[in-house]
Amino acid sequence: MNKLIVSPSPHIHTGVSTTSLMRDVVIALLPAVIVSVIFYGLGELLVLAVSVLSCILLEWAITKYMLKKPSTICDMSAVVTGLLLAMNLPYTTPWWVIVLGAVFAIGVAKMSFGGLGQNLFNPAIAGRVFLLVSFPTYMTTWKMPQGLFGADAISGATPLGAINEAVLQHQSISSIVSSYDYGSMLFAGIGGSAGEISAIALLAGFVYLLVRKVVKPWTTLSIWGTVALVSLLFWIGNPDRFTDPVFNLLTGGMILGACFMATDYVTSPMSAKGCVIYGIGIGFITLMIRYFGSYPEGMSFAILIMNATVPLLNRWFHQKKYGRA
């Protein structure tokens, strides 16, 4: 007779694994990736490829040669980090800058903390911020896209960059804001990195994650709600100085950050209450940097700062327990 397996209960499992969750995140990012390649052309494809490949290779090399542990690249978290990092970079970024970003993201922010699950800061954002403060020229110079179908290249600023410039020179921003068409911001058409190009493609991916129950909406809604409310108050106060809520929700990394970066399991709070506080923090800090800081965009900084509060939020906010008042 065949031997029987004996183990404690439960005897069945959902079948959902870390790998399947990460695969879902990759699938959710695909619409935005495709739109960005169509929009920016082969340069974007190169950025994506270099970033993803260097993240995977780095993680493999670090586990094999430095940690001497079984490789963890099969969990696909390095692919997600690579994709997110690439989507935060201009399509004109030189390859060696991308590799340096990957080294910081995977090597410093992720593996030196102990790998997946142990990192305090979101690796992709850490990598992006590292590049932003180290190589500001590469990170903030934008060329209007040529695209796969070859329109003329025009140098230009992203909407947030233009606003920041105007504010620094004490000019009214209303003419700049009115030069942008919210419709094209929603679909595709404003300058920026892959993660900024098409709000609708990113939102489609986010809806996929919600439907598959990969992420919960609390953090994202909390960020958007805070940004909408606070910017509404400022905008009503002085529309010549402060941008309106719709502008703020559609520009920069607001959608990519709120949907895909702030919702990272490892670096966001466990409880719903914690997520709401975390989201309020991110939304508020982002807006303060946009309105008063010298950087045009503050999403990355805001997420990093709030990442640091997560252990505290996890300590403060707990699940409601059964039968305990």
């Binding site: 183990s7 069945i12 499992h13 969750l21 963890t72 399991y265 490892v266 409601k320």
Partner: peptide, 30 residues
């Protein structure tokens, strides 16, 4: 009666702090 495939335990990997366990617990534990 369960088959090997139905009851196979996958090797444990690192906790990714997704909170699924806390969401599932009917006693509200973590």
């Amino acid at each position: 009666f369960l088959t090997a495939a139905q009851t196979k335990r996958a090797p444990a990997t690192a906790c990714i702090r997704c909170g699924s366990c806390a969401d599932a617990c009917p006693m509200g534990l973590e």
